[in-house]
Design a protein around this nucleic acid. Structure first.
Lengths: 335, 335
DNA sequence: AGTTGCCTTGAAACCGGTTTCACGATAGAG
DNA sequence: CTCTATCGTGAAACCGGTTTCAAGGCAACT
C-alpha cells in the first residue's frame, strides 16, 4: 500500500535513467537486460512502490491475467467447496478468478458469460451449469475453457467430473451388502444430470442384486433439507415400507433424518441412511452420517491447474477423482 | 457469444458512419447524440455483437468496474453466506467482484490487497480480517472501502457488523430464563474479536442474573466441529457440572451435541444447547438447533450496496442488522 | 583491419477505449 | 437580419503498459 497518484512505468524509467521499454523488459523478463540497469530498475521499483496497472497490461499485451469462473448456487456446500478449491489452485499462478453466479438458469448463465468475455478473461472455468453443448463448443473456440462437475461429450480433456453412476451404484451396493432391499431413493431435481446418473447407479445395483425395482420408493424432490423431510413424510403417509434411504445429498439426508426421528424411527437401528457429498457437518451429525465423499476441493484445484496449463498450451493430465464411501454410523445391518 | 477477433468501437463507428467519439458517447450516455445516429450506432452494435473491452475502458476512464473483496475462510458457512450476499448485492450494478482469500493471516491479507490494488479495483470490501487499523486508514484514503463483519473504531459509516456482545448476552439470557445457571461457554478462538465480545455478553448476562462466574465452564477452542467434541469431553472428564452450553457457532454446537450423545446425555432433556450463526443445517439437526441467527446474506448485500454508493459519492444509510434468537428445540426448561 | 553477427537498448507504434477541444450548424435573442 | 449561446460532432491527445523495429556497441571471425 503506497502513495496516491499511482507510480507508472515511466516514473521508474526516469528514476532509473532508462527507457520505458527496458523497465517493461525487466518486468517481464522477456529479453536480457544489462545487470546494472536491471538492478537500478528493481531498486527504483522498490523505492517508488510500483504496482503495474493491469488494465494497461491487459490492453497492450492481450492478457488480462483474469479467469472467469461461473458458479452455481453460491452458498451450497458442494459448490462452495469447489470454488474454494479453485481459489486455492490459482494461488501463486498470477491469475485471479472473477466469479459470476449462474443460478442454474440458462439465461443467467449466458448473460454472465457475456460479461466475463467483456472483461477479456484469459480463460473460462464453468462449474456445472446448463449451457447447451453447441454454445460450449463455440465458446471453446474463442477461449480456453474447462468444465468441472459436469460431463460434456466430446470434452474429455477439458472436463473434470466424477462418475456419478458408479457412485450411486456403490452407495446402493453398500446398503444392499448390509441386507437392505427396500431402499428409498431421494432423487434430487428431476432434470439434474447428477440426479439422473445416480439414479442409474441405484437401479443397476438393484438389478444386479436381483432386487425388484419399486417406483414407490423413488421420491422426486430437490437438494434441500426440506425436501428430505417431505420425502420421508410422503413415504410414511403413503404407508410405503422401507428400511434404508439413499439421499440426494447430505442436506437432504439431514432433513430425512429429522423427519424420521419425528416419526419415532431411529437411525440406524430402524432405518439406515446414506448421504452424498460429505460436507463438513456430516461427520458431526447424530449419528455421524455415512455418505459418498465427493472430492470437491480437489476437483476445484485440479480444474484451476488444468485451466492455467491449457492457457499456456502446456500438457496436463486430468486425474480421475474418485468418490469414496465414507463409512460412519448411519448404516446398520438389517436384522 | 460472438465471432472471433473482437469487435471494437472503431468497427461500430465505421459501420454506423460516425466517429469513435460518437459511439463512445452513446455507449456512456455522456452527451446528447442525434437520434438518428444513436439508433444507427445501436443497430451496428447489435449486428456486430459488440462487447466493450473493459481493460481499455478502465485504462482510459480510470474506472475498472471491479470491486475487490477480501474474504476469510472460503468454505465456512458464515463467510460464504456473506460472499453470497455481496454477489447478490452487486448484481445489476455493473460492478463485478473479484475475490481474494486472506485466510485470517495478516501477511496474506496485505499481499492480497496489494494485488487488488494492482488490478485497480474501484473499491474494496473487506470481510473480517486482521489488517491493523492504521493500514486500513491509509487504505481508506486511496480507495472507497467498506468493512463488514468487523468493528473498526472511527469507521462508523463504513463498517457493517452486528452487536456481538448484545448477541452473547441474549443467548445467555435465554438459557438463564429457562432456569440454567451452570452454562458452559465454548468460546472460539482466543483473539477473535467476535469470540471476545460474545464472551463479554455472556459475562454480563451472568452478572446481571447474580450468577457466579466460573472459569471452569469456559472452554477455549476454535470454530470447528472437532472443537465442540473436545470441549464436551474435557468438561465431562474434568467432572464439571453443567446443564447448558452456549457454543461459539453452529458447527461447534454440532460437535458438542455429538459428544454429548456419545456420553449418553440427551439434548435438550439433559443439556440445553445454543449455537451461533443459524447455518442452513441447523434447522435440520436433531433436535433442530436453537441458535443466534446472523443476517449474513443481508450484511453482504448491504455492504455491497453501500460500497457502490460510496464510490458514486451518494448518500447511504447503514441499516443496523440485528442478530436474533432463533428458537428451536435444543433448549429446555431446567427441571 | 574490415566484416559479420549477436546483444542491448531506445523510439515509436499500438491496444481500445474516454475526454478535451475546437469548429460548424442551428436556434434564440436583440 | 446580425450576434451570440447552445448543441452535436469529429480530430486528436491520452491512459500505461507491450512489442516491433532499427540502430549502436562490441566481440569474434576471416
Amino acid at each position: 500500500m503506497q502513495q496516491k497518484g499511482e507510480t507508472t512505468i515511466q516514473d521508474i524509467a526516469d528514476h532509473a535513467q532508462v527507457s520505458k521499454s527496458t523497465v517493461s523488459r525487466v518486468l517481464n523478463k522477456s529479453t536480457a537486460v544489462n545487470k546494472d540497469k536491471r538492478t537500478a530498475v528493481l531498486a527504483a521499483m522498490k523505492t517508488l512502490g510500483f504496482e503495474p496497472n493491469l488494465a494497461a497490461r491487459s490492453l497492450a499485451g492481450g492478457r488480462s491475467m483474469t479467469l472467469g469462473v461461473l458458479t452455481q448456487n453460491i452458498g451450497s456446500p458442494f459448490y462452495d467447496a469447489l470454488a474454494q478449491g479453485v481459489i486455492h489452485g490459482l494461488a501463486g499462478s498470477g491469475y485471479s478468478p472473477i466469479f459470476v453466479d449462474g443460478q442454474w438458469q440458462q439465461s443467467t448463465e449466458i448473460e454472465s458469460i457475456r460479461t466475463l468475455i467483456g472483461r477479456r478473461v484469459d480463460g473460462l472455468l464453468l462449474i456445472g451449469g446448463d449451457v447447451p453443448v453447441e454454445q460450449l463448443n463455440q465458446l471453446r473456440e474463442r477461449l480456453p475453457t474447462i468444465v468441472v462437475a459436469r460431463e460434456v461429450v466430446g470434452w474429455e480433456n477439458q472436463c473434470i467430473h466424477v462418475d456419478n453412476v458408479q457412485a450411486g451404484y456403490e452407495a446402493t451396493k453398500h446398503l444392499i451388502d448390509f441386507g437392505h432391499q427396500r431402499i428409498a431413493l431421494l432423487r434430487g431435481i428431476k432434470e439434474h444430470p447428477d440426479a439422473i446418473q445416480r439414479f442409474e447407479g441405484y437401479a443397476k445395483a438393484l438389478t444386479e442384486a436381483g432386487i425388484e425395482f419399486d417406483t414407490d420408493l423413488i421420491y422426486q424432490g430437490d437438494f434441500s433439507g426440506q425436501s428430505g423431510v417431505m420425502a420421508v413424510n410422503s413415504l410414511i403417509s403413503r404407508g410405503i415400507h422401507f428400511t434404508a434411504i439413499f439421499a440426494a445429498n447430505d442436506m437432504v439426508a439431514f432433513g430425512a433424518r429429522l423427519a424420521l426421528s419425528r416419526h419415532g424411527m431411529r437411525v440406524p437401528e430402524d432405518i439406515s441412511l446414506v448421504g452424498f457429498d460429505d460436507q463438513a457437518e456430516s461427520a458431526f451429525a447424530t449419528p455421524p452420517l455415512t455418505t459418498m465423499k465427493q472430492p470437491a476441493v480437489e476437483m476445484g484445484t485440479a480444474a484451476a491447474n488444468a485451466l492455467v496449463k491449457l492457457i499456456h498450451d502446456e500438457q496436463y493430465e486430468l486425474a480421475s477423482l474418485p468418490v469414496e464411501l465414507q463409512r460412519r454410523e448411519s448404516v446398520a445391518r438389517l436384522r
